[in-house]
């Protein structure tokens, strides 16, 4: 026991949400370090986060996107020797109660534990048709490529082992990195598990994926998953 735990909170223009997210994490009663990565926000996300209790803030002076932000978190975790890293959104979508569940599974020896809203809700998840089709498609692609059904491959609520942290600090994909990271880790023989988590609907702001960028997302992610599958193993 007594593993050191880092919560990586990527945040882009989340000045309105970030304080509540950090307070929530602090109230869990788990010994953990909160790292907010302010990914070049144009609002005062950094300042708000810095004023919070026991919170480390790293600010990118240019927006790198979610992949670059989370990777900075892995680099920080690697340099400061953390045993487990949790990726936790800065917009209040994730329910911090489930962090304990993710940590438990990571301590059982899994390298990546994915919090799945679909395991929690089953088929009752309400969403638009294109989004549900996209989700089904990603499930199919990951099943074909790695032989495991991942119900929620876009989930950004995840725990990573020390080994996975060290690997991803050097090799984390860029924009829309989550589905690609599953293939990447699986192909390099890391152990992956999904557990049910509750996710809230967004409090403020709106989803980054809509309209044209949905199509872009679809093709970019499919291509990335497919080609990641055909790259040589790195370990």
């Amino acid at each position: 026991m007594n593993k050191s735990i880092l919560i990586i909170v990527p945040a882009y223009n989340e000045a309105q949400n970030i304080e509540a997210v950090i307070d929530d994490l602090n109230s869990l009663g788990i010994d953990l370090t909160i790292l907010v990565i302010d990914d070049g926000s144009s609002d005062n996300t950094s300042e708000v986060a810095k004023s919070c209790q026991s919170c480390v803030v790293i600010r990118h002076f240019i927006n790198l996107g979610i992949g670059g932000a989370v990777q900075s978190g892995f680099k920080f975790a690697k340099r400061n020797n953390f045993d487990i890293a949790i990726q936790f959104d800065g917009d209040g979508q994730h329910d911090s109660e489930y962090i304990k569940h993710l940590i438990d599974e990571a301590e059982q020896g899994y390298d990546m534990v994915i919090g799945s809203r679909f395991l929690f809700l089953g088929d009752n998840f309400k969403s638009t048709l294109p989004r549900r089709l996209g989700i089904k498609f990603l499930q199919l692609v990951s099943y074909i490529l790695i032989g495991t059904k991942i119900t929620d491959s876009t989930s950004g609520f995840r725990a990573y082992s020390k080994n996975a942290i060290e690997f991803l600090a050097e090799n984390y994909p860029e924009d829309y990195p989550e589905p690609e990271a599953i293939i990447l880790l699986s192909k390099n023989s890391y152990k992956i598990k999904e557990i049910p988590v509750k996710m809230n609907s967004r409090q403020k702001g709106e989803s980054s994926i809509k309209g044209f960028s949905y199509l872009y997302y679809f093709f970019k992610v499919s291509l990335a998953m497919l080609l990641t599958n055909f790259r040589p193993k790195m370990r």
Partner: peptide, 14 residues
């Protein structure tokens, strides 16, 4: 290279 540089600068600044 730019991404790596920005990440490195941010970590060093911290």
């Amino acid at each position: 290279n730019l991404k790596e540089s920005i990440q490195e600068i941010s970590l060093l600044k911290h």
